[in-house]
């Protein structure tokens, strides 16, 4: 059986909020290392990969592999019943029909319990190769969100160009064009504002702003975001979570003339 207790329901609320517009039905794959999720969006352009390691829970118990097929809009309805600071316990039997979510108020005696009916989801898993990216940009997540939002007003696509000079987000649309260039920046007083660019070779790729803006719904989960690029491969946008856990988004590039 599965029993996983999170100190704060907020983490799962935010994760589900960040991905529910991209993927609808998905399997939460539970085993002794934690809870993982991998799902493509309907148009097979983007891929969500989440890992909540067992260390993120206390306690965590999962005796065998269990796939919990859950409709994310149903899960959202139930998670709305939890306060951010509630303790959240997820429970399921070994061959479950339902998943049980329990919310306990940390400072009162309230205890809420909900069951969500599970779905049989036949989902193919994609192998994501280990990649040494040519460029990794680490920047404040609100800054990345703002750039995507601003450029979305002008165009459907953004070109991201990394050179030793910095990273340039540029777009071209009907009303005109725009570009935001960032350079490496280190602020000792305010490390959350740091911008780090690790570059082994220059990269230039074009991506859909609609998807990038969608990924930015995860901005509340982490103060900084890693944007990893290599020519001709999907972009990785990674939000690091506590206990080595993560929420990653992969986006296929736009290629050709």
């Amino acid at each position: 059986m599965l029993e996983a207790r999170l100190e704060q329901a907020e983490l799962l609320k935010k994760v589900v909020d960040a991905i529910k517009d991209l993927v609808q039905d998905c399997n939460f794959d539970c085993n002794d290392s934690g809870v993982a999720l991998q799902a493509m969006d309907n148009s097979h352009v983007a891929l969500v990969s989440m890992m909540l390691k067992s260390e993120a829970f206390s306690p965590f118990r999962c005796d065998r592999n269990i796939a919990l097929g859950i409709n994310l809009s149903s899960l959202t309805k139930v998670l709305r019943c939890a306060q951010n600071n509630d303790i959240l316990t997820v429970k399921a039997e070994d061959a479950p029909d339902v998943v049980n979510l329990m919310f306990e108020s940390s400072d009162s005696d309230r205890l809420s319990e909900y069951d969500i009916k599970l779905m049989d989801i036949d989902q193919e898993h994609l192998g994501i190769p280990e990649t040494e990216y040519a460029a990794t940009v680490t920047m404040p997540s609100p800054e990345f969100q703002r750039i995507c939002r601003d450029l979305s007003a002008l165009s459907e696509s953004v070109s991201i160009e990394c050179t030793k000079e910095g990273v340039k987000f540029a777009c071209n649309g009907d009303i005109g064009s725009g570009a935001v260039t960032l350079r490496s920046h280190s602020d000792v007083e305010n490390p959350d504002q740091n911008i780090k660019i690790d570059l082994t070779e220059p990269v230039a790729l074009t991506f859909s702003l609609k998807y990038l803006s969608n990924f930015c719904k995860a901005s509340g989960l982490a103060k900084s975001v890693n944007i990893c690029l290599s020519n001709e491969v999907p972009l990785l946008v990674e939000y690091g979570l506590a206990a080595n856990s993560y929420l990653r988004f992969y986006l296929a590039p736009k290629i050709g003339d």
Partner: peptide, 14 residues
């Protein structure tokens, strides 16, 4: 016009 690629053309099924 650049063409949107599919994620499954980069990552193969396991």
């Amino acid at each position: 016009q650049k063409k949107q690629q599919s994620i499954s053309s980069f990552f193969a099924p396991k």
